[in-house]
Design a protein around this nucleic acid. Structure first.
Length: 512
RNA sequence: GCGGAAGUAGCUCAAUUGGUAGAGCUCCAGCCUUCCAAGCUGGAGGUUGCGGGUUCGAGACCCGUCUUCCGCUCCA
């Protein structure tokens, strides 16, 4: 990481805290690793980003609807999706080689070695004896008996340990079997740790099996399990999309880089259901469309790039990321995946329910294919903040300004009486009250006006409205532009239209 | 998890060999001010991350612990 980028990243983090955008979670208790809270300004900025996405997807598309599925889901959902089996591995590190292994794989390799030894004995014997009875030989040869007993014993112990979730027993087994690290050749092992992707919790007092619930690791499954409900109740025809924003939870092994990788985070996902065979066309469509959506934020088109996945997940037949140039380099911001019919097929199989679509044009039943767009809201937040935060040199003075896209700014304008006397605060308050129902405003009468301008610059407020003595006479005010610091005089009755036009979302959405 | 660095006021940092915890900014109450920070007066704010130990005496030395940052490792 280049020095200036590192400094930028640090200044983004401290700026976020200093001005109430993001705080470390539970900070008075020393914080909680990789968990953050959004403060009074961060919550608004985040909400505005979520609104921009939701309106772009749902409000601007007649064939996309939005839902809000719960975080808790039936445990079988995660069996069907593959999350339970794929991310439930006991891991162990060798302290000398610093290599990490799956403990179960080490044990399986050991068992495979025993099998190979048995096979060797059998082959040797086959050459010696003729005729050769393999079954008889296996059941009588003492060496093979020893191997088989060891094998059986190992498997039993491993099975018992895994079933009772006893990771210490797994480690003991590895020690007892004298398994060495293939790289360092030593037996200097750490504890066995289970890095479950999913957080689990329990619900009620139903049967033992059903009581364990998972906090969802992705919002997508809430869409898949509701797809037929939505399609039927909304009388939707292919192609159509279901959008959703919401929290997801992943127990990352190492979670770092501020809000880039958090254990609790918010996703904005849209699953687009299409006729099989048309998925690549729609994949390309959404690739283009999603990139444009990001570029429309106005942070700079050069900050984005596509990264096509070469190695595809088993369920995808095409996948790419939209990467953003964060202070720590280009990293994934949004993923676009052609997920085929994998998820719906899995849920059909596990639930035993038909999840097919009836195409009235062709008179056919089929399972739709899915194109997914999935963006991390927190990553988007970080992208916007780090690209907006600027430090300007003005003569001997430095100005810290957050050049947020105006429609995202927590406050659209600040109302500032030039002096805290002569009736200027009263006039300002009247103005504030008349505009407040329409626009998010900030009122400040403390300190010199220059200082107040700078405070607004630091939190990204695009306009400052200053009330002076002339305002009392003719109801005009000055409006000051954040990015240029220029100001012009305007009648107070023109403010609402001006601010709506320049800080509203409508103009941006028109291009979607 | 391993290795390295660092934790002192809201923020940035001082504190000589171990000898009374301080400054600037911020914040609060006023004063002064007719458009771009750092004018004046007064005030608040700390169990030096936490717990032990050595010492007459610890912010400093020793041990433990927690957190953060950097690198490695992992990441559907």
């Amino acid at each position: 990481m280049a020095q200036h980028s590192e400094d930028l990243f640090k200044s983004v983090i401290s700026h976020a805290k200093e001005y109430g955008f993001i705080f470390p979670s539970s900070e008075i208790y020393d914080g909680l690793s990789a968990v953050y809270d959004y403060g009074q300004l961060g919550a608004v900025l985040k909400k505005n980003l979520r609104d921009y996405w939701w309106k772009s997807m749902v409000q601007m598309h007649q064939n996309i609807v939005g839902i809000d599925a719960s975080i808790f889901m039936h445990p079988t959902v995660w069996k069907a999706s593959g999350h339970v089996d794929a991310f439930n591995d006991p891991l162990i590190d060798n302290k000398d080689s610093k290599k990490r292994y799956r403990a179960d794989v080490l044990i399986e390799d050991y068992v495979a070695k025993l099998d190979a030894k048995i096979q060797q004995e059998v082959e040797k014997a086959a050459k010696r004896f003729n005729p050769f009875d393999e079954t008889l030989f296996k059941s009588t040869n003492p060496r093979i008996q020893e191997y088989l007993a060891k094998r059986l014993n190992t498997m039993e112990r491993f099975k018992t340990a895994m079933e009772s979730n006893d990771l210490n027993a797994v480690r003991d087994l590895i020690i007892d079997l004298e398994i060495v690290c293939p790289v360092s050749g030593t037996r200097n092992w750490t504890e066995v740790r289970q890095f479950n992707l999913m957080f689990s919790t329990s619900m009620g007092s139903v049967s033992e099996e059903a009581s364990t619930l998972y906090l969802r690791p992705e919002t997508a499954q809430g869409i898949f399990v509701n797809y037929l409900n939505v399609q039927k109740s909304g009388r939707l025809k292919l192609p159509f999309g279901i959008a959703q924003t919401g929290k997801a939870f992943r127990n990352e092994i190492v979670a770092r880089q501020f809000i880039f990788r958090m254990r609790e985070f918010e996703q904005m996902e849209m699953q687009f259901f299409v006729k099989p065979g048309s998925e690549m066309e729609w994949y390309e469509h959404w690739k283009t469309k999603r990139l444009q959506w990001h570029i429309r934020l106005g942070l700079g088109a050069n900050l984005y790039r596509f990264h096509d996945h070469v190695k595809l997940a088993h369920y995808a037949n095409a996948a790419c990321d939209i990467e953003f140039n964060f202070p720590f380099g280009f990293k994934e911001l949004e993923g676009i995946h052609s997920r085929t019919d994998f998820d719906l097929k899995q849920h059909e199989q596990y639930s035993g329910k038909k999840l097919q679509y009836f195409d009235s044009e062709t008179n056919q039943h089929y399972t739709p294919y899915v194109v997914e767009t999935s963006v991390g809201l927190d990553r988007l937040f970080l992208a916007v903040m780090s690209a907006s935060l600027k430090e300007e040199q003005i003569e001997q003075d430095t100005r810290t300004v957050m050049q947020l896209p105006p429609f995202l700014a927590p406050y659209k304008a600040a109302i500032l009486p030039l002096l805290k006397k002569d009736g200027l605060p009263e006039f300002s308050m009247t103005l504030l009250k008349s505009l407040q129902p329409y626009i998010e405003l900030f009122y400040d009468e403390k300190d010199t006006v220059g200082k107040r301008y700078r405070r607004q610059d630091a939190i990204g407020t695009p306009y400052c409205i200053t009330v002076d003595h002339q305002s009392l006479e003719d109801s005009t005010v000055t409006i000051r532009y954040r990015d240029t610091m220029h100001q012009e005089r305007m009648h107070s009755t023109a403010l609402l239209a001006f601010l709506t036009q320049n800080t509203g979302m409508a103009t941006v959405l028109q291009g979607v």
